[in-house]
């Protein structure tokens, strides 16, 4: 009888500990998403120039992250998440290319740049003077346009290093390439951006 009670007690305590660890993992992942989601959204938005599409991409990335990588160590989550997101952005561009080919064939080619409404997608005002607000918005538009126009590997390296603040090793993991490649892509990106934005930013 005592033995049965003992087994029951061990079983209950295991369930409790499993439940507690599940709850802890939920909280940790929730916290991780809270910390990363807004920057991820803006990074995706710069990549695809459409907020709705960017929201979908971020949500898909969070779902894939929760489904496949929640058990991985927490310090791997950020590069893993961005790897999923960057793959999503790349797939999105491929699909767009295919769609555009079909649309051109049907005589309904669309230029994504023409459709992107910067005013509609600009952040809400936050109590600053209209002059400052306008200058900031214009500077951000120039930056977004210039970053978007970079070759995609350079764009990824720049956004992950500067916007997300990943180090070279984390960026390499997120991009699925060597640290040397990250340095090369990043350096070229900065060089190009300096040339493009230099006049406005000096």
């Amino acid at each position: 009888m005592n033995a049965i009670a003992g087994v029951f007690a061990v079983s209950c305590s295991r369930e409790q500990s499993t439940g507690a660890s599940t709850l802890q993992r939920d909280r940790q992942l929730n916290q991780f998403f809270v910390e990363v989601e807004r920057r991820a959204l803006r990074i995706a938005e710069i990549g695809v120039r459409d907020r709705d599409e960017a929201l979908d991409l971020v949500q898909d990335s969070m779902i894939k992250m929760a489904r496949n990588y929640a058990e991985r160590p927490g310090d791997e989550w950020t590069p893993l998440f961005y790897r999923i997101l960057q793959n999503g952005i790349r797939d999105w561009h491929r699909r767009q290319k295919v769609r555009n080919r079909v649309m051109v064939w049907f005589g309904r080619g669309a230029n994504a740049d023409d459709e992107y409404d910067f005013a509609a997608n600009a952040p809400d005002p936050a109590g600053r003077s209209p002059d400052v607000e306008l200058q900031t918005a214009q500077a951000m538009q120039r930056l977004e346009r210039s970053v978007h126009d970079l070759p995609h590997r350079q764009r990824e390296a720049f956004m992950l290093r500067i916007f997300e603040g990943l180090d070279v090793a984390g960026t390499a993991m997120a991009m699925g390439c060597s640290e040397g490649s990250v340095k090369t892509h990043y350096s070229r990106a900065v060089h190009t951006l300096r040339e493009k934005l230099g006049d406005h930013w000096q």
Partner: peptide, 23 residues
Amino acid sequence: VERLDGATLSRLNQGRQKALEEL
């Protein structure tokens, strides 16, 4: 990032909850 509007933040929150349901 700081100035994202409420509607966008709400949609992010919904997406996060949906992702957490996967667990």
